[in-house]
Amino acid sequence: MLLDAASLYFRAFYGVPTSITTPDGRPINAVRGFLDMTARLLTAHAPDRLVACWDDDWRPAFRVEALPSYKAHRLAPDGSEEVVPDDLSPQVPILVDVLAAAGIDRVGAPGYEADDIIGTLATRADRPVDVVTGDRDLFQLVDDARGIRVLYTARGIGDIELVDEAVVTAKYGIPGRAYADFAVLRGDPSDGLPGVAGVGAKTAAALINEFGDLAGIRSAVQRTVVPRPPLTAAVLKKIHAAANYLDAAPVVVAVAKEIDLPPIEGALPRTPADPAALAALATAHGLESSLKRLGAALGWPADAVA
Rank of each mutant, 00 (worst) to 15 (best):
25 G>L: 00
39 A>G: 09
108 G>C: 01
24 D>W: 06
106 R>V: 05
73 H>C: 04
26 R>I: 02
53 C>A: 14
120 T>W: 00
144 D>C: 13
108 G>K: 13
83 V>S: 10
83 V>A: 13
61 A>S: 13
23 P>F: 05
25 G>K: 11
25 G>A: 04
94 I>W: 14
109 A>T: 05
69 S>M: 02
106 R>M: 08
131 V>M: 12
83 V>P: 00
80 S>T: 05
43 T>L: 04
44 A>H: 05
63 R>L: 02
91 Q>V: 05
57 D>G: 02
80 S>H: 00
25 G>V: 00
64 V>S: 05
85 P>N: 03
73 H>W: 03
104 I>N: 11
125 A>D: 07
35 L>V: 15
89 S>Y: 03
145 A>I: 07
121 L>K: 12
109 A>E: 05
107 V>D: 15
140 Q>P: 00
24 D>R: 13
139 F>T: 00
26 R>Q: 10
77 P>L: 02
96 V>S: 11
32 R>C: 10
132 V>K: 15
55 D>N: 11
137 D>L: 04
90 P>H: 13
91 Q>A: 15
76 A>M: 04
78 D>H: 03
88 L>R: 07
131 V>W: 14
79 G>C: 01
139 F>S: 10
132 V>E: 09
34 F>W: 14
112 Y>M: 06
139 F>P: 04
49 R>V: 01
30 A>Y: 03
64 V>Q: 09
145 A>V: 13
93 P>L: 10
71 K>T: 00
44 A>I: 04
73 H>Y: 01
42 L>R: 13
74 R>D: 01
39 A>L: 14
46 A>L: 09
38 T>F: 11
90 P>N: 11
108 G>M: 03
81 E>W: 01
27 P>R: 05
101 A>Q: 03
86 D>V: 07
70 Y>L: 04
58 W>K: 07
67 L>M: 02
41 L>R: 09
97 D>R: 11
24 D>H: 08
